[in-house]
Amino acid sequence: MLKITDLVKRYGKGDPVLKNLDLTIEGESVVSIIGSSGAGKSTLLRCINRLVEPTSGSIVLNGTELTTLQGRELRAARRKIGMVFQSFNLVDRLTVMENVQSGRLGYISTWAAVMRRYPKKDIRRAFELMERVGIAHYADKRADELSGGERQRVGVVRALMQDPEILLADEPTASLDPKTSEQIMGLLRDLAGELKLPVLINIHNVNEAKIYTDRIVGMRYGRIIFDDKPDSLDQEAMDQIYSGSPHADRSTDMKEAS
């Protein structure tokens, strides 16, 4: 279970990007976060694995408070959180297998990492997962030889190799064409079911969110203003999520304050 309470993130002295945000994710549901650019979706995801340092608040994953961890403990916590990126973030000049095994870097010894002596069970697991997403025959290819959809599959397998307790996906389909994008979304949904894994997906495409996820969270300017089943996302909710300006939002703040 992931429980976020009162999370605030402020860059410099400006307006906070996340404003006292609360969110709880239970079970193995696929949750999508929608909202216009700048709503804080990406910051929220990056706060969870501390690629972005939260300003205040609490994030608890299966009993572990994440916001206070440092060094070795932080790395141990991070390997339980898989992440899939918009631009795949593969190491282009390494082979697909090395990219996939880099998901295990938090587990294996430095010697094994440098010499590429991966444990047998990791290699078997990698081949199984690659087979599952259809890229096993590319194991020896360099990552930059693959197409966008194939590269994102490598990204997904890398995250799953971590043996994660939750999977974060930051706009996983934004760099892909519509057809490939649906394949990846379907894959994420199916894998979540197969591996009994909660998945949190930032997404621009509301249709895909409706089709492939169990729950939709709508964000606007650092707050959650919608949180319900996909069916309940009506036109009015959509308008609320995608309209308005930071200015309008701030003026309501002022009213509340006074």
Partner: peptide
């Protein structure tokens, strides 16, 4: 170098040294 793979490997919980070996060295090899 492209910082995104570095970010990705940090997110897997890899140590500093392993991030260098996997994300930085391959990029500066050429």
């Amino acid at each position: 170098i492209d910082k995104r793979p570095v970010e990705a490997l940090e997110a897997t919980g890899a140590s500093r040294f392993k991030v260098i070996v996997y994300a930085i060295i391959p990029q500066v090899m050429p």
